[in-house]
């Protein structure tokens, strides 16, 4: 069972003050899938993503990623296991350039350890060169290559979303949590972005994404999970979920 799912969330709970944001929520994500997470505002979707990525500590429950229990681990260790997330509100590093933002997201860049700067300068130079080349490749994929040496703060809202995705790809993750990846991105680019995600999935990556754009969810996801008031209320193939009365009632509307 554990080998069939890449991510398993078991009865996870999280309360902020008196508000139960995530209420004994359980769900599973299959490897090499594009799984959608939908639900009304305040359903606890982003909170759940933050818990999975290690940014919030859950009050209870278990999270398993690829055979490892990850709840309680710090975010940077979870990234090293191969799980990366993007932010709903872009967290670009404002006064770093786009290229710097990407190179920073690389794992195991030897120059980031102070001692290596002095003891292994050759290795540091090679790593840095390799990661810069990789970053430029990723920027070409996300069509940000023209802005490589601009400060991240000068990007538009949509471009910042692309930067989020580009950074996530830099760490070579097996599972990517995307928090509204195409919100604010123009339709043409959103389409090619989702094509890119589809291509990456065929290369063996898994995507778990929150999205309000029903076109994206219905056409691109192969499994959809619906959250409401901190719980999973439905899941299934997109067309099944679309027809579920509980989902129509709480989210899609009549």
């Amino acid at each position: 069972m554990a080998s069939e799912t890449i991510l398993r969330v078991n009865a996870v709970e999280k309360a902020f003050g008196g508000i139960q944001a995530v209420d004994r929520c359980s769900l599973a994500v299959l490897p090499r899938s594009i799984t959608g997470l939908i639900g009304p505002n305040g359903a606890g979707k982003s909170t759940l993503f933050n818990i999975i990525a290690g940014l919030y500590r859950p009050d209870g429950g278990e999270i398993w990623f690829d055979g490892t229990r990850i709840d309680g681990l710090p975010p940077y260790e979870i990234v090293h296991l191969g799980l990366t997330k993007t932010w709903q509100i872009p967290h670009e590093l404002r006064n770093l350039t786009v290229l710097e933002n990407l190179v920073l997201a690389a794992k195991n860049n030897s120059g980031e350890r102070l001692i290596n700067l002095f003891l292994r300068p050759g290795q540091v130079k090679r790593d840095e060169k390799q990661w810069r080349a990789r970053a430029r490749e990723v920027l070409k994929l996300t069509q940000l290559d023209g802005l490589a040496n601009e400060h991240a703060r000068t990007l538009s809202g949509g471009q910042k979303k692309l930067l989020e995705l580009s950074r996530a790809l830099m760490s070579d993750p097996t599972l990517v949590l995307l928090d509204e990846p195409v919100a604010g991105v123009n339709p043409a680019l959103a389409g090619s972005l989702m094509d890119l995600i589809e291509k990456l999935r065929q290369n063996g990556r898994t995507f778990f994404l929150i999205e309000h754009d029903m076109n994206v969810v219905m056409n691109r996801c192969d499994w959809v999970i619906v959250m409401h008031q901190g719980r999973r209320i439905a899941e299934g193939r997109p067309e099944m979920v679309k027809a579920d009365p509980a989902v129509i009632d709480s989210y899609l509307g009549g």
Partner: peptide
């Protein structure tokens, strides 16, 4: 510099 800009984001990019 990344920590200065946004510590949470830097942590989510895999830095201790």
């Amino acid at each position: 510099r990344a920590v200065r800009e946004d510590e949470e984001a830097t942590m989510a990019l895999g830095k201790n």
